[in-house]
Amino acid sequence: MAAVRTGSEIALNRFAVVIVLIVTLIFLAPIYWITSTAFKPRNLATTIPPTVVFEPEISPFVKLFTKRAQLRSAPTPEEYAAAPWWERLVFDGGEKVVRSGKGEVQLSGYPSRFMNSLIVAITSTVLAVGMGTFTAYGFSRFKVKGEQDLLFFILSTRMLPPVVVAIPMFLMYRAVGLNDTHWGLIILYTAFNLSFSVWLMKGFIDEIPKEYEEAALVDGYTRMEAFFKIVLPEAATGIAATAVFCFITAWNEYAFALIMTNRRAQTAPPFIPSQVGSGLPDWTVIAAGTFLFLLPVAIFTFLLRNHLLRGMSFGAIRK
């Protein structure tokens, strides 16, 4: 049966499309801004009105990865001719690359901060999702004394803004020597995400009929084997969705990273704005750093987008 739509319905539909477009544009505008600034020459980054048409450059990325100093005077023609093409981009910006005594280019702080972010976010996501899945399985399949109270307790750890406990946490971390360590942040982020992971995974595991495991038990497998061979593959969607959420939380976390780390284990979020204050703010470099920082989450989310959609609409659809 073909649905006949009235004129007002079509108008309403068009109106909805317009609203969605506007909202999407509002959300995409900062991303466009960051991306375009990351590829702009420095002198076009802060023009008013903003420059929209320009020749993209990769000099901001070269500057992002290298340690630099202001040029006191312009480079000599020999120096300029001897420099590789990417170093000339730095010269053109009025700066020069800092080299070690042996003449090696020195890296900026960014690559190590980026690595720290990866290490902390990936490890804490694996831990939170792994422990959360086991815990959720326990709550879902076994009679646990005081199950409701325990689940509520787990949820209650998310009921106050984490920053509230930042000072006590900082003092505790300093006392046990965990500040400015990878493990310090990993433990912290795992603890944040665990409650979320338990609750989300419990929902997903509750949806897997327990007959599957019972069938596996009768088929001659132990409960552990049944968990790995049957429950985990069935819960893949849930695990993916939970992992994306946990990863984004850990990746983007700013406040604790700022307080708990300063050099060795510092992640990218507190590092990038700290560059504003070093010398003249070079917005193109900051934009380049932010642009690269956005990529892992974007790629991860894109790869798992189908699972994620299922994870968000989860509970709304009955099979």
């Binding site: 009929p209 007959e211 019972e214 069938a215 009768v218 497998y221 132990t222 069935e234």
Partner: peptide, 18 residues
């Protein structure tokens, strides 16, 4: 344990591993 009883079972929901 059920895995040691050497008994097979067919469930109402079939329980085929999807």
């Amino acid at each position: 344990k059920c895995s040691d009883r050497d008994i097979a079972m067919v469930f109402q929901s079939f329980s085929l591993y999807p």
